[in-house]
């Protein structure tokens, strides 16, 4: 028996890794049922698959409620099923997760005008196919649906510098993370600052945006300095690494030359 086990283990080592066991979390009953339906009942599934929510494992039931494991009770209100919210209920619907943004929104002009048709989340962000938002969402075409673009343009202008800074530091941290540096704490701080930043402009108040982005910039600047220090360390390592690599190559070449001298000697001797 033990021989069988040992050989089986070796066989397992030979054959390596099987792909068939790699499986994603099972599809929920929502996806199984709606995914096969034509028209508006099935379309949200295809749209959702392209979304930032899908990328982060946020599924139908996380927003719409219900029991994602049971066909029969999946859409029972008793199971917490909410369905599609009314137009004016959307901010509260999304705000269950995006708490800070919802607060800022509700205190701003858009939120105050919700009952009279003021813009809510899906007007700018869309619904099921929602993507990671960027400043490109604030554009003349979108904003002019309801009002002139002037004030929105000012807000966008105030945001550009901070947005670029946050994005750049985010990329730097990702790069350092891929090099094995422990940047979790900095990523956490950046995450908080990014959220704060997103919160600020949902209030659509130009003055407030200007004041509060300065504070965000200061915090992100601190992270940027830490990144610069780590980059300097990486640069030093590369420099010393290059020297050692050069020494090994040089030693290799010298050994080859010595070997060549021996070869001459061997030919002469032979």
């Amino acid at each position: 028996m033990s021989r069988v086990v040992i050989w089986s283990f070796l066989l397992a080592c030979f054959v390596g890794l099987s792909p068939t066991s790699v499986a994603f979390a099972a599809d929920t009953v929502c996806i199984e049922c709606h995914g096969g339906q034509p028209g508006p009942l099935g379309a949200p599934i295809a749209e959702w698959r392209t979304s930032v929510h899908a990328q982060n494992g946020i599924s139908c039931h996380d927003c719409h409620g219900g029991d994602p494991t049971d066909f029969a009770s999946a859409m029972e209100p008793e199971q917490g099923f909410l369905g599609a919210p009314d137009y004016s209920d959307v901010p509260a619907f999304c705000g269950r997760c995006h708490v800070g943004v919802a607060e800022a929104y509700q205190s701003g002009a858009h939120g105050q005008a919700i009952e009279s048709g003021g813009a809510q989340c899906v007007v700018c962000h869309g619904n099921h196919a929602i993507q990671k938002p960027g400043l490109e969402l604030i554009n003349e075409e979108n904003c002019s649906q309801c009002h002139s673009y002037d004030r929105a343009a000012l807000i966008r202008l105030s945001l550009v510098e901070t947005d670029t800074m946050v994005a750049k530091v985010g990329e730097d941290l990702e790069r350092l993370y891929r090099l094995g540096f422990a940047v979790d704490e900095m990523q956490g701080t950046l995450f908080n600052q990014r959220n704060l930043f997103h919160r600020i402009f949902h209030g659509v108040d130009v003055e407030r945006v200007r004041q509060e982005t300065a504070a965000v910039q200061a915090e992100v600047g601190k992270i940027s300095n830490e990144v610069a220090e780590i980059d300097a360390t990486v640069g030093q390592r590369k420099l010393w690494g290059s020297v050692v690599i050069g020494l090994f190559v040089l030693a290799g070449v010298i050994f080859m030359l010595v070997r060549k001298a021996y070869e001459e000697e061997e030919k002469g001797g032979g």
Binding site: I245, F248, Y262
Partner: peptide
């Protein structure tokens, strides 16, 4: 020492290769 130097040369090149990936 005749062949040993060739061993040493290839060992050096392999070490340079390993370090080049690391850095």
């Amino acid at each position: 020492p005749n062949y040993f130097v060739k061993d040493a040369a290839v060992i050096c090149f392999f070490m340079a290769f390993l370090l080049a990936i690391i850095f």
